[in-house]
Write a protein that binds this DNA or RNA. Structure first.
Length: 873
RNA sequence: GGGUGUUUAGCUCAGUUGGUUUAGAGCGCUACCUUGACAGGGUAGAGGUCAUAGGUUCGAAUCCUAUAACACCCACCA
C-alpha cells in the first residue's frame, strides 16, 4: 500500500465523522453503566464558531471521548440558545434593510420573521462543531425555545411566583432606548467618555440669590424635584428649608439635606432627579419627593420637556444648554471625563428609568449555592481562584430583573384583567389564568378576551439557568428515568465571563428545583486573546476565522494548537504557529507509522536482546506517562496531559524506541518485535485519540482491519500499570551515556545502532553506576586503544567521567576539572554545614535529612573521582 | 473608589501544604551531524539577581508587608 508522506487531515475528517455518526457511537441511553454527562454551553442559535467556542468545545470533546473510552456511558448534550436580545437585534436589523420597521409588525408577524431567521442560520454553528470533531449526542440537540424547553421555563416561572419568589416592582432599570428594552446590569458596559460639566444657576425663591449646581446632564433639570446639600456644609446653611426655582421649568423645588452628597464634587450642591438616576431615586424615596419622568420610550422628551418635547435627549441637552447660556443661567462649562453606561448589544447610551418589571428574589436561592461551592465542596471550581470571585458576587447578590421588553423569547405568563396593571394572575395557560382571574375578581363573567397577557418576555438566562435540568425534561417530569440517570452531570466547561450570568444561576436552579447540584466540576477556561494580548472580538477583527483554520491545518492540528497553551482559567494568547506545531505533530505520528509499515518482516529471526530491552523500556515508559496523564486529567490539566503525550510520542517513541528497533537499511525486522511494536503503537493511539480523533482513527484502521465494534472511538482507554522504576532508571542512564559518548565521538564513524549494540552487549544496566562506567570505559578503549583523553557527562545531577577517544588539551582539561573540583568541594561544605546545624537536624523531616546525607555522599564520591582524574592527567 | 489575580529564559507557560531545584518545559535561537519514516530529523549549547524593596525561617520563586506595572470583576460622584 502506498501511503502519502504527509498527513492530510482534511481527507479523513469527513470520512470518520460520518462513520462515527452512522455507527451511532455518540448517542446515549440510560443503561447499567455509570453515566458521564456534559451539557454544552449552548451557543447563540444564529452565531458562528469563534475561537472561544473552539477552545471550550475541544476541551469538552477531549473529556467526553476519554470518558467514553473508559467505559462510562458518555453523554454530551448539544444545543443552542435563542439569545433574545442578540437575535432580536439581528432580526430587526435585517427587517430594516428590507424597509420594514419592527413597530409596523404585529407580534406574531415579527416572530415569524425571527423563526425564519432561526431556521436559516440555526444549524450552522452545530455543523461547525461537527467539523471540529465534537462527539455530541446529536439526537438530543435542544433549543431553548423548543416547545418542551419553553414550557419548562413557564412552569418554573409559575412555580416560583406561587412560592412568592417572583414579584412585580416599579424599579429603576437600565433602559436601552434603541432596543426599547431593559437590560440587566450585566449587559451594561461602562465606557470612559468625554463630557461636560455644566454649572447652572438656580434662583432662590423670593430672593435674588443664585445657587450654582453642577450637572453632566442639564436636560434632566426638567425632572428635578429637589436640590440636595450636605447637612454639614457651612456654605449652604442659609439655604436650609428654602426653595429653589428650576430654570426654564420655573418650578419651585425644596432644598433637602443628606449626607450622601459629596461636598468636594462640583459645587457641593446636587440636583435631584428621582426618575432618571438610581441614587436620586433613593434620595427621592427617603425624602418623599415627587417623581417626574421626562422621557418617552426612545429617550425623546415627553410633555414634561415643555418646549423641548419630542426632541432626542442629546439634542435637547444642547438646546437647553444654549437656552441657559442665553439667559445667563449657564455659569460655566468645563470638560469632564466620566463613565457612561452603554448597551452591550446596541451600543446606545443607557438611560436609567423607572418602570414596571418582574424580579426574582435571590437571597434564599443563593444560600445553597454558596454552600455547595464554598463550604461542602459539592461543586468544584477549576481553577480554584474563582471561588473568591464567586463568593464576592453571591454574597452581594441583588434581585434579578427577569423581564425584557422584547418579543423573541418566552412571554411572561402574567394576565391582567383589570383596568390598570395592578390586577393580574400568573398561570401556565389562559384557561387556568381565566379561572384564577374569575376567582380573584369575583367576576364569573370574565371571558378570555378580558385577559391581557404581559407583553414582555423573560430574560434569556431565565431559560438557560434550567439547561442541565430541562434538556432531560426534568422540570416538567421531575421523576423521569432520563433525568434520574443523567442528573447531576459531571463537568461543565465554560468561560469565566458567564460565571454569574449562567453558572451561578444553574447552581441555584439546581438546588431550588431538584435539591441537587447540576454538575460536580466547573472548568473555567481562559479568554482567547490574540498575540498582542487583546481580547479576540469581532469589532477588532483580530479573531481568526475558525473554519479557515481547520481548513488550513486540519481539525486535529487546531485542537492540539489550542490545547498546547491553555491552562485552566488563564487567558491564552492564540498564535497560529501553535496550529503549525499541531500539524507537525500529526505529521510526525503519521510518518512514524509509515516507517513501521515499510519494514520487511522475517520469520527466521529471533528477537535480539536489544529489541527486547527497548520493548521493555518503552512499555514501562508508556505506563509511567499514562499515570501522569491520568493524574493530569483528574486535575483538569488538559494541556499538561497533552504535553506529556507529545513528549512520549516524539521523544521516547520516535526518537528512541523506533530508532532502537529499526533494522539496518535493507534488512528485515523479526516478527515478534514488529508485532509488539505495533501493539505499542496502538496504545499510543488510544491515549492520543481524545486529542486528535481523526488521525488516530485513520491509523488505527491502517494497522489492522477492524469492524465497527473495534473502532478506536469506542476502544478501551489503557489501564495504568505499576512501572518498573529500575528499568526506567537504567535506560535513563544508557541515554545519558550514549549522549555523553556521542558528544565526543564526532571523529568516529560509529552509527547510533552500533553504539547501542555495544552498550547492550556490555550489559550496562546494573545497580552500580561506577561499575557501569568502568565497563563503558573499556568499550571506549576498544573503540580506540590510543584513547587517553578524559571526557565527562552528566547523569542526573552528578557528573561522571569516561576515557574517550578524542584529543583534548590536557592543560585546558586540568583547568576545567579543577574548577569543577572547587565547585564540588564548595557544595559539599554547604551540605555539611547544613547537616551540622542543630536546628536543621531537629526540625527538618527525616526524609529531607536523608536526602541531604545522600547529597553529601554523592558529592564526596564526585570529589574522589575528580581528584583521581586530575592526577591521571 | 472597592475587590481578585498576574509578574519566572527571546516568546508562551509549569513549578502542586517552604526542603529530592545547582529554578524546568514547549517553541524560538546558535553550533555540529544526518542520502530514506518525517519541505524535515538528531545531538549539544547559550539564555533567568524567579517585578522591586524589606521581613519571617536552619532553608523562600513558594509565606508576610510595602511598592510598581498589567489584567479582570464589582460599584459608579451629580
Amino acid at each position: 500500500m502506498q501511503i502519502p508522506s504527509k498527513f492530510v487531515s482534511q481527507n479523513v475528517e469527513d470520512k470518520w465523522y460520518s462513520y462515527w455518526m452512522e455507527k451511532d457511537f455518540f448517542s446515549s441511553t440510560p443503561d447499567d453503566r455509570d453515566p458521564y454527562t456534559i451539557v454544552i454551553p449552548p451557543p447563540n442559535v444564529t452565531g458562528v464558531l469563534h475561537m472561544g467556542h473552539m477552545l471550550n468545545n475541544t476541551l469538552q470533546d477531549i473529556i467526553i471521548r476519554r470518558a467514553r473510552m473508559q467505559g462510562f456511558n458518555a453523554c454530551w448534550v448539544p444545543g443552542t440558545d435563542h439569545a433574545s436580545i442578540a437575535t432580536e437585534a439581528k432580526v430587526v436589523a435585517r427587517l430594516k434593510e428590507q424597509g420594514i420597521e419592527k413597530s409596523s409588525l404585529s407580534r406574531e408577524a415579527f416572530l415569524n420573521h425571527a423563526w425564519d431567521w432561526t431556521h436559516e442560520y440555526g444549524g450552522v454553528i452545530l455543523d461547525q462543531l461537527k467539523k471540529l470533531g465534537c462527539s455530541c449526542d446529536w439526537n438530543r440537540t435542544k433549543f431553548t425555545l423548543d416547545p418542551q424547553m419553553s414550557e419548562s421555563v413557564i412552569d418554573t416561572f409559575v412555580k416560583l411566583f406561587n412560592k412568592g419568589l417572583i414579584y412585580r416592582g416599579y424599579r429603576m432599570v437600565n433602559w436601552d432606548p434603541e432596543a426599547k428594552t431593559t437590560l440587566s446590569d450585566e449587559e451594561v458596559i461602562y465606557e470612559e467618555r468625554d463630557g461636560q460639566l455644566y454649572h447652572i444657576a438656580y434662583n432662590v425663591a423670593d430672593s435674588d440669590e443664585k445657587v450654582i449646581i453642577a450637572t453632566t446632564r442639564p436636560e434632566t433639570l426638567l425632572g428635578d424635584t429637589a436640590v440636595c446639600i450636605h447637612p454639614q456644609d457651612e456654605r449652604y446653611f442659609h439655604l436650609k428649608g428654602k426653595q429653589l426655582v428650576v430654570p426654564i421649568a420655573k418650578r419651585k423645588i425644596p432644598v433637602i439635606e443628606d449626607e450622601y452628597v459629596d461636598m468636594e464634587f462640583g459645587t457641593g450642591c446636587l440636583k435631584v432627579t428621582p426618575a432618571h438616576d438610581i441614587n436620586d431615586k433613593a434620595l427621592g424615596e427617603k425624602h418623599d419627593l415627587e417623581v417626574i419622568d421626562i422621557f418617552n420610550d426612545d429617550a425623546s422628551l415627553n410633555h414634561h420637556g415643555l418646549d423641548f418635547e419630542g426632541m432626542d435627549r442629546f439634542v435637547a441637552r444642547k438646546k437647553i444648554a444654549k437656552t441657559l447660556e442665553a439667559s445667563g443661567e449657564l455659569v460655566k462649562k468645563e470638560n469632564h471625563r466620566h463613565k457612561v453606561g452603554t448597551s452591550e448589544r446596541t451600543k446606545a447610551v443607557i438611560e436609567p428609568r423607572l418602570s414596571d418589571q418582574w424580579f426574582l428574589k435571590m437571597e434564599g436561592l443563593a444560600q445553597p449555592a454558596i454552600n455547595a461551592v464554598l463550604e461542602s465542596d459539592d461543586i468544584r471550581l477549576v481553577p480554584e481562584k474563582f471561588k473568591n470571585t464567586y463568593r464576592h458576587w453571591m454574597e452581594n447578590i441583588r434581585d434579578w430583573n427577569i423581564s425584557r421588553q422584547l418579543w423573541w423569547g418566552q412571554q411572561i405568563p402574567a394576565y391582567y384583567f383589570g383596568k390598570d396593571s395592578s390586577q393580574f394572575v400568573v398561570a401556565k395557560d389562559i384557561t387556568s389564568a381565566l379561572a384564577l382571574a374569575k376567582e380573584a375578581s369575583g367576576n364569573s363573567n370574565l371571558k378570555p378576551d378580558d385577559l391581557r397577557q404581559d407583553e414582555d418576555v423573560l430574560d434569556t438566562w431565565f431559560s438557560s439557568w434550567l439547561w442541565p435540568i430541562s434538556v432531560f425534561n426534568g422540570v416538567l417530569e421531575p421523576d423521569n428515568p432520563e433525568i434520574n440517570y443523567y442528573y447531576p452531570t459531571q463537568d461543565l466547561v465554560t468561560g469565566p465571563d458567564i460565571l454569574f450570568f449562567w453558572v451561578a444561576r444553574m447552581i441555584m436552579s439546581g438546588y431550588e428545583l431538584r435539591n441537587e447540584k447540576p454538575f460536580s466540576n466547573v472548568y473555567l477556561t481562559g479568554l482567547v486573546r490574540d498575540k498582542q494580548g487583546r481580547k479576540m472580538s469581532k469589532q477588532l477583527g483580530n479573531s481568526p476565522d475558525a473554519l479557515a483554520l481547520i481548513d488550513e491545518y486540519g481539525a486535529d492540528a487546531v485542537r492540539v494548537g489550542l490545547m498546547l497553551s491553555s491552562a485552566a482559567g488563564n487567558d491564552l494568547l492564540f498564535d497560529e504557529s501553535l496550529c503549525q506545531q499541531g500539524k507537525n505533530f500529526a505529521n510526525k505520528i503519521w510518518n512514524a507509522y509509515r516507517l513501521v509499515e515499510g519494514w520487511e518482516v522475517t520469520e527466521a529471526q529471533e528477537m535480539p536482546p536489544l529489541n527486547k530491552a527497548a520493548l521493555d523500556w518503552y512499555e514501562n515508559r508508556f505506563h509511567q506517562t499514562l499515570n501522569t496523564v491520568d493524574d493530569h486529567f483528574k486535575k483538569y490539566r488538559i494541556s499538561d496531559a497533552l504535553m506529556s503525550l507529545y513528549k512520549l510520542i516524539w521523544d521516547d517513541f520516535c526518537s528512541w524506541f523506533l530508532e532502537m528497533i529499526k533494522p539496518a537499511y535493507g534488512s528485515p525486522i523479526d516478527k515478534p518485535t514488529l508485532v509488539a511494536a505495533k501493539k505499542l503503537f496502538e496504545n499510543n493511539l488510544r491515549l492520543l485519540h481524545p486529542f486528535m480523533p481523526f488521525l488516530t482513527e485513520e491509523l488505527w484502521h491502517f494497522i489492522a482491519t477492524r469492524n465497527a465494534a473495534e473502532a478506536l472511538v469506542v476502544s478501551q482507554w489503557p489501564e495504568a500499570k505499576q512501572v518498573n522504576q529500575n528499568c526506567l532508571d537504567d535506560f535513563e542512564m544508557i541515554k545519558q551515556i550514549i549522549g555523553g559518548i556521542r558528544n565526543f565521538r564526532k571523529e568516529k564513524n560509529i552509527g547510533f545502532k552500533e553504539q547501542l549494540i555495544l552498550i547492550s552487549e556490555a550489559h550496562i544496566p546494573n545497580p552500580e553506576v561506577i561499575l557501569k562506567l568502568g565497563q563503558l570505559s573499556s568499550i571506549n578503549h576498544q573503540l580506540d586503544e590510543k584513547s587517553q583523553s578524559l571526557g565527562s557527562f552528566r547523569v542526573g545531577k552528578s557528573e561522571f567521567f569516561i576515557p574517550i577517544n578524542q584529543a583534548i588539551d590536557p592543560e585546558e582539561e586540568r583547568k576545567k576539572l579543577t574548577q569543577e573540583l572547587k565547585y564540588a568541594e564548595g557544595f559539599l561544605r554547604s551540605v555539611e554545614k547544613k547537616l551540622s546545624n542543630e536546628r536543621f537536624v531537629s526540625n527538618a523531616p527525616e526524609k529531607v535529612i536523608e536526602l541531604e546525607r545522600k547529597k553529601a555522599t554523592d558529592a564526596q564520591e564526585r570529589i574522589t573521582l575528580l581528584k583521581k582524574s586530575i592526577s591521571q592527567l
